[in-house]
Design a protein around this nucleic acid. Structure first.
Length: 680
DNA sequence: GCAGTATCAACTTG
DNA sequence: CCAAGTTGATACTG
């Protein structure tokens, strides 16, 4: 009786991101849970006969403390593990443990009696579709404001589903939903912090942008995956994806607990009255954790005081029980690792490391001497490389590239020190060395007339860095384009940075892109995309990456160049991805994206046939992680802005950077090549 | 049994 | 080390 569970309902997806729903139906989600032989020795007491074919279940017996042996004290008895009756635990504690087990066992006895009829011949119907909790819509009577407030945010669903076999189109759709939601989250987070800073400059107390952004999205029903509890991977979230805030994990639906490390479907909502774990965060907060990557010994939660010191025995309830039940049914859990990192916008980064299965669990005496539950998790096969491992790998590459990779490097800096940071060139798959043959161009070269046409230079008079309403802020429409970390607040037709006519120092916050690259990039060869670019550092969403450089050609010059057959880049073809960055129209219906300062359509081409920089090697994608933002600083000629590249999402190290080069429409092509042809 | 309320735990952030 | 802050689970109440 393999159980089926309903299909993921596309119609119920929040309108959040994403244009249209794909018209294909998503494959049915089958929650066929493989039977796993329990490793546990059954207790002597026989199982109730009305629970057919139930795997041996130790919880059902209720031994008295006096009759317990060490191995029986431990419900997940294993000779290798220290029994709790170890001398380090005081006798009174030991008794507590006994009574605790007594209590749990009772609890289970009743739970099993009530709800386990949905379990049979080894396949577990975790969900009974017909018995699915239907959230009733109560008649509006007299209800308190608190209730109204609560109703606005419906409870998390109790419907447990697994999403499998998404086709490419669906995958792209969900990725886009996640991408847009995260962009929105980051925009709100950055903007609220910036707004508060503007209102209250130098205030020691900082507003929690992470929380504000989350509630702004929640208020509008934009949290993802609340209508289903997803077991297994979350559509649109890839192994290796990076997050900087716990709240963002909640928004995406990867992990629904703000602080707790174990997320689970609570027993009260489960169809068989047993809790089921869905995800955990391995964050190093429990001293008894042992993390070896593919194998994790994870400590359950509870028993800690305010200072995260173990001060009491853990209990087999809540998340701990859920993990045990997930093990029992062989249900996989998502694993997210929290890794300390210096610098950046947060002191911790959360990496989605994929799915694990729980293979063992036992009650142990922790380093503190108190009883803790431990779970042994093994990473499932066939998943992408672990994000946390890639982070480590990238760190070692940064430290000493040649000792990590003996061969493959064609250059340790193709920029020849023209950039702040080296640009590596790596090819370990064929003999192509093409990028070696170009002169590295760190900044775009404009025709001299560009500077003449821009007229008398104007700048601000700030002496000590720019604040508030200086001239340059006004040029940008009254606000600076960047936050304190140098992240782009929102995309604009063009950004004015401070320049040579300003009196502010080079350290001014309004000089982000002219300060140059901050991340170590690597041009690399791949079978799929030819040459590509990736970063050895993780790049924050909104961060400046590098310029797209070339030698600027006016239309007239371009015609001559094109006759030589040189390949030219036409900047007006880049898709206006900047419009997506900081677009709050989903939050404020009357939101209009910035149109000021407006610029005329670009009318120039770029020659990259002899001189170019890293950007030239970025691949095209229709779901890019990098976008173009036009920036002016060394001249004021609106016709000829710099093409500056910013990250549209948090980009993990070693992940390929991609740009939306746009598609040349027929008319565009005509416009250029047509005229060029005439010229010919 | 259920809806509303109160309480509390939780590997946060700054 | 602590305060502010949020969610979800659960126990309790009528």
């Amino acid at each position: 009786m393999g159980s089926l569970i309903p299909i993921l309902d596309l119609n119920n997806l929040p309108e959040s991101a994403a244009g249209t729903t794909p018209n294909t139906t998503i494959s049915a989600v089958s929650m066929k849970v493989p039977k796993i032989e329990p490793k546990l020795e059954p207790f002597d007491e026989p199982l109730d006969t009305h629970l057919p074919q139930l795997p041996p279940e130790p919880f059902i017996s209720t031994p008295t403390p006096n009759s317990l042996t060490n191995s029986q004290i431990n419900p997940f008895s294993d000779q290798n593990h220290t029994p709790v009756s170890d001398s380090s635990a005081a006798p009174s504690d030991q008794e507590n443990v006994y009574s605790e087990f007594h209590r749990i066992s009772e609890l289970f006895r009743t739970a099993f009696a009530k709800g386990l009829q949905s379990i049979g011949d080894g396949e577990v119907e975790v969900l009974d579709p017909d018995a699915r909790a239907i959230v009733p819509v109560p008649q509006e009577t007299q209800i308190s404001e608190a209730v109204v407030a609560r109703r606005k945010y419906p409870k998390r669903s109790s419907e447990l589903v697994r999403v499998t076999d998404l086709n490419i189109e669906d995958q792209r759709y969900f990725r886009d939903v996640v991408r847009k939601t995260r962009m929105l989250y980051d925009s709100i987070r950055i903007l609220t912090v910036a707004a508060e800073e503007k209102r209250n400059p130098g205030n020691g107390k900082r507003v929690r942008g992470d929380l504000q952004a989350a509630s702004a999205l929640r208020d509008r029903g934009l949290w993802l995956n609340r209508d289903k509890r997803i077991v297994g991977s979350i559509p649109g979230v890839y192994v290796g994806d990076l997050f900087f805030f716990r709240m963002e994990l909640c928004v995406v639906g990867l992990h629904g607990q703000v602080q707790a490390g174990i997320d689970y479907l609570p027993a009260s909502q489960s169809s068989n009255h047993e809790p089921i774990a869905t995800s955990i965060i391995v964050s190093g907060g429990y001293e008894d954790d042992e993390d070896a990557g593919d194998v994790i010994i994870y400590t359950g939660h509870g028993g800690q005081d305010k200072f995260n010191k173990q001060c009491a025995h853990q209990k087999l309830e809540g998340g701990n029980l859920a993990l045990e039940r997930s093990m029992h049914y062989g249900i996989e859990v998502r694993v997210i690792r929290g890794i300390k990192c210096q610098g950046g916008i947060s002191h911790k980064v959360y990496v989605y490391d994929g799915l694990y299965r729980i293979f063992d669990c036992w009650f142990d005496v922790g380093k503190s001497g108190f009883g803790v539950y431990k779970f042994k998790l093994l990473r499932m096969e066939g998943q992408g490389e672990m994000g946390s491992a890639i982070l480590k790998f990238a760190a070692s590459l940064r430290a000493s590239p040649l000792s990590v990779r003996q061969s493959g490097y064609l250059s340790l800096d193709i920029s020849n020190k023209k950039e702040n940071v080296p640009v590596f060139l790596f090819n370990d798959i064929d003999s192509d060395q093409d990028p070696m043959y170009y002169e590295y161009l760190a900044a775009t070269v404009f025709p001299t007339q560009v500077f003449h046409q821009s007229g008398k230079g104007t700048g601000c008079d700030c002496v000590d860095g720019c604040f508030g309403n200086c001239f340059c802020a006004l040029k940008n429409g009254g606000e600076f384009a960047y936050d304190d970390n140098g992240c782009l607040l929102r995309g604009k037709p063009v950004v004015f940075e401070c320049g040579p006519f300003c009196h502010c120092p080079p350290t001014c916050r309004n000089r982000v892109t002219q300060k140059g690259m901050r991340n170590r990039l690597e041009v690399f060869r791949s079978r799929e995309t030819g040459w590509g670019v990736r970063s050895l550092d993780l790049i924050h969403a909104g961060a400046f990456i590098c310029e797209y450089t070339g030698v600027i050609l006016t239309r007239e010059m371009a015609q001559i160049f094109a006759m030589n057959g040189d390949t030219l880049v036409y900047p007006h073809r880049f898709s206006d991805r900047w419009t997506e960055w900081g677009d709050l129209s989903q939050i404020y219906p009357d939101y209009v994206r910035p149109t000021y300062p407006s610029i005329p359509p670009l009318d120039f081409a770029m020659d990259v046939s002899k001189m170019r920089n890293v950007a030239c090697y970025m691949s095209h994608s229709s779901t890019p992680n990098v976008m173009v933002q036009f920036v002016l600083y060394d001249h004021n000629n609106l016709m000829f802005p710099h093409l500056m590249l910013f990250a549209m999402e948090n980009i993990p190290p070693m992940r390929e950077l991609s740009l939306d080069y746009g598609v040349a429409t027929v008319s565009e092509a005509d416009e250029w090549t047509g005229k060029l042809a005439i010229c010919n």
